[in-house]
Simulated assay, not measured.
Amino acid sequence: MSQSSRRKPRVAVVFGGRSSEHAISCITAGSVMDAIDRDTYDVVPVGIAADGRWVLESSDTSRLRLTTPGALPEVDGDGDSIALLREEGRTDIVVSAPSATPRTLGEVDVVFPVLHGPWGEDGTIQGMFEMAGVRYVGAGVLASAVSMDKAYLKIVLQAAGLPVMPGVTVTEREWRADATGCRERIAALGFPAFAKPARGGSSIGISKVHDASEVDAALVEAFRHDPKVLVEVAAVGAREVECGVLGTLDGGVETTRPAEIRIGGDHEFYDFAAKYLPEEHTELDVPADLPAEVEAEMRELAVRCFEAVSGEGLARVDFFVMPDHSLVVNELNTMPGFTQTSMFPRMWAESGLDYPALVDRLLQLALRRGTGLR
């Protein structure tokens, strides 16, 4: 490692971004920054505004908390500009302000990108970090890109022999050119179904389609967020259960005990409000009440999913437990919800790794990992 032994490793926590999950990323960043041990690490908060501008953000994490849907936190794009400068075998953080000489904050040793959605969780920023020669937390370019695109993830998991729900992909171009044909392909799947942005997250843009009359509206809503939409058969009667995967410092992989989401109120599925607003009465059973053999199979499948996409660092694998106890993989998230109350940290806490220790594990994994091909 290039940093001097006389100083603490410098962590750039990068958050915000250009995707529809900008606010969720801000919330996650606040939790992560609060958890990082300042006696061990120096922390630099780096925000990416909705227009893509990189800025030096405030260290005040109180403003990054979620209160109501109408008061979502966001990056203040008026701050001083930030850039990563690679030269002489090191990568520095450089700050630029109007009418001022650029100044360096020093070498960055590791980036913790708490970005969700496109341009952050999809391999784009991971590629930039690779080009800049800086270590970073989480999955690499390939795993990030494949896992972000639910349509391609389905192809990869199927090729690896893993169980997935039947589905079809519809692009906005196909919809404009042949709406009738698209409707016929979706109808052939059967109803109910779910239409979701192929590269979205946090349940933004997802609709449950009960019958053919709801197809058009569901696609239009999903196209607002992504020109590619995945329509999948609904897992009727299934339980939604998740399993966490985490790298170990000796190069191995371990999993959590699974946890179950039980949706309260009037929600038909685990939508944005059910995920993030406490008054929505969603119940999280940590651990899930599963037969021992089903839990063991789920944990094995979670590792197989992680390996199928060449995962690194962490992932949350989401399953449907069907009424006959068979398992179907729903999604794999390379940067899952990461607030202290999110499912991934809660599963690890139940498994004996509390939130600060989890954050430290991820930083240590990243610091030990090189950049480039591996």
Rank of each mutant, 00 (worst) to 15 (best):
S5W: 10
P9R: 09
S19I: 11
E21K: 04
I24W: 01
G30K: 04
S31A: 15
D34S: 14
I36C: 08
T40N: 11
V44H: 00
P45V: 07
P45C: 04
I48K: 00
A49N: 06
D51T: 12
W54H: 03
S59Y: 00
V75T: 05
G79S: 09
S81M: 06
R90S: 14
R90T: 15
S99M: 14
T101Q: 14
G106R: 08
D109A: 07
V111K: 00
P113H: 08
P113A: 09
V114A: 03
W119Y: 15
M131D: 13
G133M: 11
R135W: 02
A139V: 13
G140D: 10
L142A: 13
A145H: 04
M148S: 03
M148P: 01
A151E: 11
K154P: 00
A160T: 07
L162T: 06
P166A: 02
T169P: 00
T169D: 01
T169N: 00
A177K: 13
R185F: 02
I186F: 03
G190H: 10
F191N: 09
V209N: 01
E214H: 13
V220M: 11
E221H: 11
E221N: 13
F223M: 09
R224M: 12
V229Q: 05
E232Y: 10
A234E: 13
G237Y: 12
R239Q: 11
E240L: 06
E240F: 03
E242Q: 14
C243H: 06
C243M: 09
G244Y: 05
D250P: 12
V253L: 06
E254D: 10
T255I: 07
R257L: 15
I261T: 09
R262N: 11
R262I: 15
E268A: 14
Y270V: 05
D271W: 03
A274L: 04
L277R: 02
P278M: 05
E280V: 00
E280Q: 11
V286I: 15
P287S: 05
A288K: 02
L290D: 03
L301S: 05
L301G: 01
R304G: 03
C305M: 10
F306K: 02
E307T: 14
G311L: 09
G311N: 10
G313I: 08
L314H: 04
L314G: 04
A315K: 03
D318N: 09
F320Q: 02
V321D: 01
M335L: 14
S342W: 02
S342G: 10
S342R: 02
P345Y: 08
E350T: 09
L353Q: 13
L353M: 15
D354E: 15
A357W: 01
L358F: 06
L358A: 06
L362H: 05
Q364M: 10
L365G: 03
A366I: 05
G372N: 12
L373K: 12
